[in-house]
Nucleic acid binder design. Structure first.
Lengths: 230, 230
DNA sequence: CGTTAATTTGAAAATTTTCAACGTGCGTGG
DNA sequence: CCACGCACGTTGAAAATTTTCAAATTAACG
């Protein structure tokens, strides 16, 4: 039991909202999407949304569930680059190259909106604002992000949890209690450390009453990003 | 003495080249830029190109010298997010927000091309291709980069050096022998470790004949990113 | 020169990894 | 239904890496 799935979220709090609207995909201001043409897709946990190197055909907005983007290093082991929550848009980075840049894999059952590029092109020819909306979207994605892995591991874990909690809250989801879609191994990978270390840290935070851990289900109790003076 | 400055590079190997041309800034195919209007700016080492929070007025292309982008963490210490070499474009990430997202500071005497946004807007109204060129540029910047700080410190250092060397080579500069514009402290910061550790690692690589170090001047001799079996 | 900042070095302390083992949950096949 | 194998998470203890603290050197600069 992984707890209930994260999401779904309202179109209003989706990053793709503006673009969607300009494409005429959302006819009404309803919470539910009116898909005139962009398809809703469901991806099973472990399955991929798209793979690195594949020709780009669509961009995606996550509606429900979580996704990880990974890249396989030269050494052969996979590096988890980031995880994505409902409301986030995937595939943007591939606009230029024409092929997707990394693998994206569903961490849980994911429902996402698929916006085919042809549709985007077609509309952008008519709707002038669409271009700038895309530009805005893209530029937001291009903001140099802080490494998720900075400082001592304890801080990395807390920072990760706080960041995730905040992102969920921002979209109107529960940032207090949620299931981190990642296994310990994946989390270790994302935070650039080892499974055992992650495990120990989670236990420690649990003992310290900073969080409550039940498998993959985390409840944030009194989490601070800074290392407590002990 | 820091060795001679990195660059300048030819317009042809600049990321902004296409955009520049479409804006009519480069009249001829000459190596040297024909600035019809975009200004050439010089920044002294330590001075900033732009600061986080400042309203965006231009994007920049580095022509000569190196630049770091930094962000001040909540804890007050600065995090070096990345360093930039000639040919790279700065300021793109701010398209959406209207204000620059982080501080960019010259590591050495930097010469860069300044492309004011108004000019960009003006031209993009007329030149259709400009929009898609910008989109391409932006999307390339949005590709999720690997953390510069992954794995054991030794690997972080070698990876950093190899990456820098490669980027310089790609632009037609010397990737074999170059001055890392960063101080040990800044390097430690970028690689998420301590000055002493960086210093020790550099010395070790030197002893191992993997690189040759003379202050800030590095010569790559036999550098491999993987940890050698010893 | 004299002084300050940057870098290097050493040695102990702290963190993290490694290696090994153990427990749990789960699905499969008996 | 139960035994078994297997993936996953947790734990312990030694080994390795990294940080810390202190001090020595070197470089930079007026």
């Amino acid at each position: 039991m992984d707890g209930q799935a994260v999401g779904p979220i309202a179109c209003g709090s989706c990053d793709l909202n503006e673009v969607c609207r300009l494409c005429g995909l959302i006819a009404f201001e309803t919470g539910a999407a009116r898909q005139s043409s962009g398809a809703l897709r469901t991806i099973e946990p472990g399955a991929s949304l798209f793979r690195a190197g594949t020709p780009v055909h669509s961009i995606y907005a996550i509606r429900q569930g979580m996704v990880k983007t990974v890249r396989v290093t030269e050494e052969g082991d996979e590096a988890v680059l980031a995880i994505h929550t409902p409301g986030e848009v995937l595939g943007l980075e591939s606009f230029g190259s024409g092929t997707y840049a990394c693998d994206t894999i569903a961490l849980s059952r994911v429902v996402c909106c698929e916006l085919p590029l042809p549709m985007l092109g077609e509309h952008s020819a008519r709707v002038r604002q669409l271009g700038s909306a895309l530009l805005r979207l893209l530029s937001r994605a291009a903001v140099p992000r802080d490494h998720p892995a900075r400082g001592p591991v304890r801080q990395r874990v807390t920072t990760f949890l706080l960041d995730l909690a905040q992102r969920l809250s921002q979209r109107g989801l529960d940032g207090h209690r949620f299931s981190l879609g990642l296994s310990r191994q994946e989390l270790a990978n994302l935070l650039d450390t080892r499974v055992e270390t992650v495990s120990r840290l989670m236990q420690r935070l649990h003992r310290e009453r900073a969080i409550h851990v039940e498998g993959n289900l985390v409840t944030v109790l009194a989490l601070a990003s800074s290392t407590p003076t002990h």
